[in-house]
Every structure is written in C-alpha cells, then in structure tokens.
Simulated scan of single mutants.
Amino acid sequence: MDRLTSMAVFAKVADLGSFTAAAKELRISPTMIGKHIRFLEERLGSQLINRSTRRQSLTELGRSYLDHCKRLLEEAEAGDALVEEAMSAPRGKLRVATSVAFGSYSLAPALVRFMKIYPEVTVDLVLSDKMVDLLEEGLDAAIRVGTLTDSTMMSRALSPYTGVVCAAPSYLAERGTPAHPHDLAGHECLRYPGWSDGQRWTFLGPDGEIHVDVKSRLTMNSTFAIRYAALAGAGIVLMRDELLAGDIAAGRLKVLLPDYRTQSRARQILWPKHRKMTPKLRALIDFVVETYG
C-alpha cells in the first residue's frame, strides 16, 4: 500500500472518530479503511487506534503520529499546489460565502467580471447572514465583517465596513431631525438583531467617542427589509453607505449627523489554513483584494 495514502486515511479516521464515517467521506469501504490502518500499525510495530464495538480512540502513540501525518500531508499538498499553480490556469468550481446584502448588491456583480477574466472558473455564491463554518460547508472562501478569531483560517484585509445614518424625509418631518448622536435615544431606530453592535451605536466626532443605546421597536433579520422600512418612514437606519448611496442621491433618504463618523469595522476575505492554495482560489483572493482592498 501507498504509505502517504494510508496516512491520509488514518488522519481522516482520527478527525471523524470512526471507520464508517471515514469510509463514507473517502468513498471507500470500511474494510479498506481497516487495511490502511493495519498497514501503518504493522509497519510501525505498534497500535495506533483502540478499537471497540462502539467507538475508536487514538492510542498515545497514535496521537503523536497523527501530528506528524498532518504535517507531512500538508507539505505534500503544498508541493502539489506549487506544481499545479505553475502549470495550470485557474479552473474549476469555487464556493464563496458572504452576507445576503453585500453578496447581492456588490459581490455578485463583481463576480461577473471575475468569471469573464477566468472563463474556466465557475462560482457557487452562498448568501447567508449566519456565521457559516467553511470546513463543514465545503466552502473555499468567505468575506466577513469583524475580527478574525479562528486560528484555522487565513485572511487578507479588505477596506473596512463603514456605515451611514439615514432616515426618510417623511420620518424626519414627523419626528424631527437629530442634531447630536445622543438625540437618537429619543427616536425609532431600525436594527438587525444579529449585528454585533446590538442596540449600542458608536460615533466619533468633535467631542470624541460617543456611545448611544438606541430603541428598536422594529427589528428585522434582513438588511433589505430594514432599507425598505427606512424608505417607508419607519425610523432611522445605520447601514453600509454603499447600500444606501442610490437612495441618498435620489433624495429618498437623508444623511444625518454629518459631523460624526460611525465606528468602522474590519472586513476580510477568509479561507481555510490547510486548504490547498489552488490557482482558482489564488485568483479569487487577489481579485477580491484588488476590488475591495
């Protein structure tokens, strides 16, 4: 048997916790999984996995050997990627995740340009406002707002997320125009329940940093719904400026508090640290950084 293949099988069994799950993932029989494990154990002269009728667990030697296997497999993947990158143009399918609003309004049109540049690449754009797991969902990359805390991910910085405070003229005619961020406490503010800011909005202005706890009688889990509610005069909205630029230019929404900046948040493109850097993924990362960097 090929030792590198057997190491890959062993690593998969260790990650998934059972021969059956690894067999399903690798699309081979549980019997063949067992042969690969026995091949390694006979070669090493020691047991790597404790087997029982209910579960499998790594021996102490198995845990140490797993670390070496993963490093060797990563180096092999990196070597393959270097050869592929040198010999191959970007081709194949990419799965990319981002938020519903940004993906619909900005990234989808940008990807049309990307696919014209790389005609052999296809893209599956996954739009969700929930935090998706790239590894579990089989995603190649994601564009997210916020600080990276996942050590299994690599990232490159994009331009920060900046918001603008707006309201419809009809709302302002009824409730008045706030002159200072603290005035927002007396207004209806439209809020997305999943935003990390929550009910506290932060501003930077002549008098430094200001935090305001806003009231939200109407919360919606859709950025598009919040925009339409703001256009209908439901309240004041804090949203990414590029999503409201057309409404502002047409006079459907009026920018408020022009002397105060909203707090910007980091934005980045992420991809799994141990995912092979293929030409198609490298092309996507470079394109996104060039477009939004």
Rank of each mutant, 00 (worst) to 15 (best):
L244G: 03
E290Y: 07
D247I: 05
A168T: 00
P272L: 10
Y161I: 02
G198Y: 06
I143S: 02
K273Q: 13
P272Q: 02
S46E: 10
E41H: 01
S196F: 03
A229F: 12
E209H: 05
H180T: 08
A81N: 02
L61A: 10
Y260T: 01
L284M: 15
K273H: 09
R275K: 14
L238S: 07
K276R: 14
H36L: 08
R240D: 15
G103N: 06
A167S: 04
R261P: 00
T202C: 11
Y161A: 07
T98L: 05
V13G: 03
Q199L: 12
G233P: 13
T147Y: 13
S128E: 11
R71T: 13
D286K: 10
N50Q: 00
F203T: 02
Q56G: 00
M87N: 13
R265H: 07
T152Y: 07
I248L: 15
M115L: 08
L270F: 07
A110T: 09
R144E: 14
G34F: 00
A245Q: 15
E290Q: 14
G79P: 03
S46I: 10
L61D: 04
R252S: 12
I210R: 13
F102K: 04
L270R: 00
R113M: 11
V212D: 01
E137L: 11
A232N: 14
S6Q: 01
S57L: 00
T291V: 11
L66W: 00
L172N: 06
T53I: 08
A141R: 04
S170C: 12
R265E: 14
L231N: 13
V123L: 15
G62F: 01
A86V: 10
E74T: 07
A86N: 13
T291C: 12
T149C: 04
E77G: 07
T59A: 01
L72P: 00
E41R: 01
R51H: 10
T278C: 13
A185D: 10
L134Y: 02
W201I: 06
D207S: 15
V212H: 01
R191F: 01
L256D: 00
S216Y: 02
H68S: 09
